[in-house]
Design a protein around this nucleic acid. Sequence first.
RNA 1: GUGGGUGUGGCGCAAUGGCUAGCGCAUUAGACUGUGGCUCUAAGGGCUGCGGGUUCGAUCCCCGUCACCCACCCCA
Length: 418
Amino acid sequence: MDIKAVRGTKDINPDEADSWQAIEHIARLTFGAYGFKEIRTPIIEDTNLFKRSIGETTDIVEKEMYTFQDKKMRSISLRPEATASIVRAYIENGFDKKEGFVKFYYIGPMFRAERPQKGRLRQFHQIGVEAIGSRSPFLDAEVLLLLSRLLNNLSIEGFTLKINSLGCPADRDNFKALLRKKLKNHLKSLCTECNRRFEKNVLRILDCKEESCRRIVKEMPKTADNLCRDCDGHYASLKSILNENSLGFSEDKDLVRGLDYYTGTVFEVTHPSLGSQDAIGAGGRYDNLIEQFGGKSAGAIGFALGVERLLLVSDPDKLRQKSDKPCVYFATIGSESYKAAFGLLERLRANGISAHIDYESKSLKAQMKQADRMRATHVAILGEDELKKGEILLRDMKTSAQKSIKIEDLLKTLLKHS
RNA sequence: GUGGGUGUGGCGCAAUGGCUAGCGCAUUAGACUGUGGCUCUAAGGGCUGCGGGUUCGAUCCCCGUCACCCACCCCA
């Protein structure tokens, strides 16, 4: 075929979909325990929503969005992330005027037109949470505890949680000015990219991986060391709450995020097995965003996990919940037996038992093989002899034990196993 | 967007400027006339990513293109 899935997108086949469902299931249970409720927002949004939240000069908005004009010439974009949509929905649906404080989670596809790489697709999927309506450091702590709990529940090991604080917008402006002053004499030693960043987004220089830049950055002041009293107190409280609750983390004073709306606490979870795209999740506070969009001023914090990246660091066997529910395969010999067995399928299925049959009149051996391959717990063998006696041979595939039972007792016997 | 690598049955990989493009796994069938996993035997399955060029002849060499992988970048 000459038509293929578009660049950076892929199919999730049933085998893999099992793992997806497991991740989503575990995530929903974990979120539920922490009081988060699902919210589903549209995949397309007004382009301005992203321009004004993520920031016009960020790479995401500048060159990675799927943007098009609809028939009325409105600029529409596929969402590159979910926080902006959720803040929009929070305000548009009046949550700021009602309960004020909400905990939302979401699961769904995001779109960024980047060059595909391992762990980086153009349509990728995120699982995330947003808690809106509080500035308490206990909320920061809870969200981080939730993040860590979720990763544990997913049996993911060996990750690192890094945290930092950027401070309030005023802190950030002061810090940017301070940083520019200190960096001014070093411009010649910084890479060309950082020279551009100096004007565009000074904070990013702290993040540069260039060896020469890193040496200079090492000597630079840190955001977390230049916080106002409130922000410093908030950050200190968060750290002590995390310690009191035994959550391991490491402080990374150079951690900055690429989206403009972040303020205060920021964090990132990385996994060493992922290579260069090593962030499996990240997030932070955005205490200014709700107000900025015209809502009632409210603190907020959230994170997002990349599902494809979670899968890369997950063990599919550990994810797959071992179901001990019976799964019955009907093996038949002869057309009369087949007809009878076909009718029995319905009886079992109506009672929630997974039941299967072959459609190609294969040999008994082939049917057994098929049953084995689909991990059936039982095979119900029905031949002309059994049919005449009104019995059926029930074989337990684990123990290889089989016994003849009355056909009408089949359902009862299987239900005993579930 | 930049640089490098790869592209061969469903999957993982060989091979050579020239005879019918091989192997492992998987699939199907048989050995075992009504019984899965192990073993053995056999069979089916390929426009060698796509397009062009060089050549008597290209899977191999060259150019383009597409896709994937790795790094940069960015980020989840």
